[in-house]
Amino acid sequence: MDLIGFLKSQFLCHLVFCYVFIASGLIINTVQLFTLILWPINRQLFRRLNCRLSYCVSSQLVMLLEWWSGTECVIYTDPQAYPKFGKENAIVVLNHKFEIDFLCGWSLAERFGVLGSCLPLGLCLLS
Protein backbone atom coordinates (compact mmCIF):
# COMPACT_ATOMS: atom_id res chain seq x y z
CA MET A 1 0.00 0.00 0.00
CA ASP A 2 1.35 3.45 -0.89
CA LEU A 3 1.60 6.33 1.58
CA ILE A 4 -1.54 8.12 0.33
CA GLY A 5 -3.60 4.94 0.60
CA PHE A 6 -2.28 4.34 4.09
CA LEU A 7 -3.19 7.89 5.18
CA LYS A 8 -6.69 7.58 3.71
CA SER A 9 -7.31 4.49 5.86
CA GLN A 10 -6.25 6.09 9.17
CA PHE A 11 -8.87 7.33 11.64
CA LEU A 12 -6.71 10.31 12.59
CA CYS A 13 -6.79 11.52 8.98
CA HIS A 14 -10.59 11.22 8.97
CA LEU A 15 -10.74 13.18 12.20
CA VAL A 16 -8.53 15.99 10.86
CA PHE A 17 -10.71 16.36 7.74
CA CYS A 18 -13.82 16.43 9.93
CA TYR A 19 -12.45 19.11 12.25
CA VAL A 20 -11.21 21.24 9.38
CA PHE A 21 -14.62 21.05 7.69
CA ILE A 22 -16.49 21.93 10.89
CA ALA A 23 -14.13 24.77 11.84
CA SER A 24 -14.08 26.32 8.37
CA GLY A 25 -17.87 25.96 8.16
CA LEU A 26 -18.32 27.81 11.44
CA ILE A 27 -15.94 30.58 10.37
CA ILE A 28 -17.54 30.96 6.95
CA ASN A 29 -21.07 30.97 8.39
CA THR A 30 -20.04 33.65 10.87
CA VAL A 31 -18.69 35.79 8.03
CA GLN A 32 -21.95 35.19 6.14
CA LEU A 33 -23.84 36.45 9.18
CA PHE A 34 -21.79 39.65 9.15
CA THR A 35 -22.54 40.19 5.45
CA LEU A 36 -26.21 40.69 6.36
CA ILE A 37 -25.25 44.31 6.99
CA LEU A 38 -24.78 44.69 3.23
CA TRP A 39 -28.31 43.51 2.35
CA PRO A 40 -30.06 46.92 2.66
CA ILE A 41 -27.05 48.78 1.20
CA ASN A 42 -25.97 46.73 -1.83
CA ARG A 43 -27.83 43.50 -2.54
CA GLN A 44 -25.70 42.59 -5.54
CA LEU A 45 -22.50 42.72 -3.46
CA PHE A 46 -24.23 40.73 -0.71
CA ARG A 47 -25.20 37.99 -3.18
CA ARG A 48 -21.75 37.93 -4.79
CA LEU A 49 -19.99 37.60 -1.42
CA ASN A 50 -22.33 34.87 -0.20
CA CYS A 51 -21.90 32.99 -3.46
CA ARG A 52 -18.13 32.97 -2.93
CA LEU A 53 -18.46 32.00 0.73
CA SER A 54 -20.85 29.19 -0.14
CA TYR A 55 -18.33 27.99 -2.70
CA CYS A 56 -15.68 27.75 0.04
CA VAL A 57 -17.76 25.23 1.99
CA SER A 58 -19.04 23.21 -0.98
CA SER A 59 -15.65 22.92 -2.66
CA GLN A 60 -14.27 21.01 0.33
CA LEU A 61 -16.79 18.24 -0.23
CA VAL A 62 -16.13 18.19 -3.97
CA MET A 63 -12.40 17.88 -3.27
CA LEU A 64 -13.03 14.91 -1.00
CA LEU A 65 -15.18 13.27 -3.65
CA GLU A 66 -12.63 13.66 -6.41
CA TRP A 67 -9.41 13.11 -4.45
CA TRP A 68 -10.42 10.69 -1.73
CA SER A 69 -12.66 8.36 -3.65
CA GLY A 70 -11.23 8.92 -7.13
CA THR A 71 -14.76 9.28 -8.51
CA GLU A 72 -15.10 10.30 -12.14
CA CYS A 73 -18.31 12.09 -13.11
CA VAL A 74 -19.12 11.95 -16.81
CA ILE A 75 -21.83 13.99 -18.50
CA TYR A 76 -23.36 12.88 -21.76
CA THR A 77 -24.99 15.72 -23.64
CA ASP A 78 -25.69 17.24 -27.00
CA PRO A 79 -22.50 18.92 -28.29
CA GLN A 80 -24.49 22.02 -29.29
CA ALA A 81 -25.81 22.49 -25.74
CA TYR A 82 -22.43 22.10 -24.04
CA PRO A 83 -21.19 25.71 -24.62
CA LYS A 84 -24.29 27.01 -22.81
CA PHE A 85 -23.54 25.13 -19.58
CA GLY A 86 -22.64 27.49 -16.75
CA LYS A 87 -23.85 30.54 -18.66
CA GLU A 88 -27.63 30.17 -18.37
CA ASN A 89 -30.03 29.47 -15.53
CA ALA A 90 -31.01 25.84 -15.19
CA ILE A 91 -32.61 23.30 -12.95
CA VAL A 92 -30.80 19.98 -13.03
CA VAL A 93 -32.59 16.91 -11.74
CA LEU A 94 -30.35 13.98 -10.89
CA ASN A 95 -31.51 10.41 -10.82
CA HIS A 96 -30.97 10.06 -7.09
CA LYS A 97 -30.18 6.47 -6.29
CA PHE A 98 -27.41 6.72 -3.69
CA GLU A 99 -26.46 9.17 -0.91
CA ILE A 100 -23.47 10.49 -2.83
CA ASP A 101 -25.37 11.60 -5.94
CA PHE A 102 -25.66 15.23 -4.84
CA LEU A 103 -21.85 15.38 -4.63
CA CYS A 104 -21.58 14.20 -8.21
CA GLY A 105 -23.93 17.03 -9.16
CA TRP A 106 -21.72 19.46 -7.24
CA SER A 107 -18.67 18.07 -9.02
CA LEU A 108 -20.27 18.86 -12.36
CA ALA A 109 -21.30 22.30 -11.09
CA GLU A 110 -17.67 22.91 -10.09
CA ARG A 111 -16.49 22.07 -13.61
CA PHE A 112 -18.81 24.70 -15.07
CA GLY A 113 -18.03 27.34 -12.43
CA VAL A 114 -21.47 27.53 -10.80
CA LEU A 115 -20.83 25.66 -7.56
CA GLY A 116 -21.22 28.74 -5.35
CA SER A 117 -24.79 29.29 -6.48
CA CYS A 118 -25.69 25.60 -6.55
CA LEU A 119 -28.47 24.54 -4.20
CA PRO A 120 -29.09 20.88 -3.46
CA LEU A 121 -32.66 19.96 -2.69
CA GLY A 122 -33.39 16.57 -1.24
CA LEU A 123 -36.53 15.05 -2.66
CA CYS A 124 -37.62 11.64 -1.58
CA LEU A 125 -39.71 9.86 -4.19
CA LEU A 126 -41.11 6.47 -3.47
CA SER A 127 -41.32 4.14 -6.41
Score class of each variant (00 low, 15 high):
residue 105 G to S: 02
residue 34 F to Y: 06
residue 51 C to L: 05
residue 7 L to G: 07
residue 123 L to D: 07
residue 101 D to P: 02
residue 100 I to M: 10
residue 8 K to C: 06
residue 1 M to W: 04
residue 25 G to T: 12
residue 95 N to D: 13
residue 13 C to Y: 15
residue 91 I to A: 09
residue 66 E to N: 10
residue 22 I to P: 05
residue 27 I to L: 11
residue 56 C to S: 10
residue 70 G to A: 08
residue 89 N to S: 07
residue 75 I to L: 11
residue 100 I to Q: 09
residue 108 L to Y: 01
residue 78 D to K: 00
residue 28 I to S: 10
residue 84 K to C: 01
residue 30 T to M: 05
residue 116 G to W: 02
residue 33 L to T: 15
residue 37 I to A: 13
residue 126 L to T: 15
residue 70 G to N: 02
residue 124 C to F: 13
residue 52 R to H: 12
residue 88 E to Y: 01
residue 120 P to F: 06
residue 36 L to P: 02
residue 69 S to T: 12
residue 36 L to N: 10
residue 18 C to Q: 07
residue 51 C to I: 09
residue 9 S to F: 03
residue 98 F to D: 08
residue 2 D to N: 13
residue 58 S to Y: 06
residue 14 H to C: 14
residue 88 E to K: 11
residue 18 C to E: 10
residue 87 K to I: 06
residue 29 N to Q: 08
residue 87 K to P: 05
residue 81 A to M: 01
residue 36 L to T: 10
residue 108 L to I: 05
residue 86 G to M: 03
residue 88 E to P: 00
residue 73 C to R: 00
residue 4 I to L: 15
residue 51 C to Y: 05
residue 50 N to C: 08
residue 1 M to S: 14
residue 18 C to Y: 08
residue 36 L to D: 10
residue 38 L to D: 07
residue 64 L to V: 11
residue 106 W to M: 12
residue 57 V to L: 12
residue 28 I to K: 01
residue 115 L to C: 05
residue 2 D to M: 05
residue 46 F to V: 06
residue 31 V to M: 07
residue 28 I to W: 01
residue 11 F to I: 11
residue 49 L to N: 11
residue 33 L to A: 15
residue 119 L to G: 01
residue 51 C to K: 05
residue 106 W to S: 05
residue 66 E to C: 05
residue 73 C to Q: 04
residue 35 T to V: 03
residue 47 R to T: 15
residue 72 E to M: 04
residue 43 R to S: 10
residue 90 A to K: 03
residue 21 F to M: 13
residue 8 K to W: 13
residue 90 A to S: 14
residue 25 G to Y: 04
